Simulated assay, not measured.
Amino acid sequence: MITLPPTEHVLHAYVDHQLDEADRLTLETWLAAHPDVALQVRQWQEDAQLLRAALSGDLQREANPELDPAFIRQRLRRNRYRHFATAAVLLMAVSIGGLSGWQAREMTLSNATPPMADAVQAYRMFAVNDTMASDWNPEKSNDAQQWLDRNFARAERLPNMEAAGFRPVSGRMTSTEQGPAAMVVYKDEQGRTLSFYIRPPGARNHMLPRGSRLDGDLQADYWSGDGYNYAVVGAAKDEATQRARQALPASI
């Protein structure tokens, strides 16, 4: 004796002609009053008829439970639930990993950018171009350190490279995504140049260990300290600039 409203198991039993006469009549009376469920049952019946027609020759063989319409519908439902579960797991992974994904992206970009690349670019743009306007030069003030301190009060002192023949001759302010940066250009009597560059660290310019790298014909020596990144940039294969680099304090 079935109970109403019918369970899905009872509905499948009805579609597969597994109910006795009394239960069948009871269910059909209930379905007549519930057209939405009756529509679903009719669709199941149509599916069962199509399956039986497609397998009409095989139906003469020994019964195969895997070909039973009810079994097939259950398997389809299980697969659908499995897909829903997989989608839910993926959604959770995307939600939880969103922030980590952006952090990984920034780390990838950081790794793809050579250390102090902007210091090398600034040297190429300004250090060897005497026609570029400067924010500081000896005519405006005889102390480059005072000019630099106005924007970088806690930064390390300018390197003193006078022993190698290099003196500050100009300074220029630039900008980065993290804040202002500056470059002080040094020259010797033969017009050879070196630059001292200072900038705040950022996602692509994190705090750096002391290092050196070549960029074409230029060499960049870089380090970090007191909350800033620094670099000295100049010709890589010039004896005078190499002597100036050797004169830098060991603490730099």
Results as ranks from 00 to 15, higher is better:
197 Y>V: 13
194 L>D: 01
166 F>M: 03
181 A>K: 04
182 A>E: 02
171 G>R: 03
168 P>R: 04
194 L>C: 07
194 L>M: 10
192 R>M: 12
204 R>Q: 10
191 G>C: 14
198 I>S: 01
191 G>N: 05
174 T>W: 05
203 A>C: 00
192 R>F: 09
183 M>D: 00
165 G>Y: 02
177 E>P: 07
205 N>F: 07
181 A>E: 02
201 P>K: 11
181 A>M: 13
194 L>I: 08
195 S>K: 11
177 E>N: 10
206 H>F: 12
186 Y>E: 05
173 M>G: 03
204 R>P: 05
198 I>P: 01
194 L>F: 09
200 P>D: 03
192 R>N: 14
195 S>N: 07
193 T>L: 12
170 S>V: 00
190 Q>V: 05
193 T>W: 04
200 P>H: 07
173 M>C: 02
182 A>P: 02
203 A>E: 09
173 M>N: 01
166 F>H: 05
186 Y>D: 06
183 M>V: 14
205 N>E: 12
180 P>I: 09
189 E>F: 11
183 M>E: 13
165 G>N: 00
186 Y>W: 01
199 R>E: 08
187 K>C: 05
170 S>C: 04
195 S>T: 08
177 E>Q: 09
168 P>Y: 04
203 A>D: 12
185 V>G: 01
188 D>L: 11
207 M>E: 12
178 Q>G: 06
169 V>C: 05
171 G>C: 01
198 I>G: 02
180 P>A: 10
199 R>V: 15
165 G>H: 02
205 N>A: 14
204 R>Y: 09
190 Q>F: 06
174 T>Y: 04
166 F>E: 02
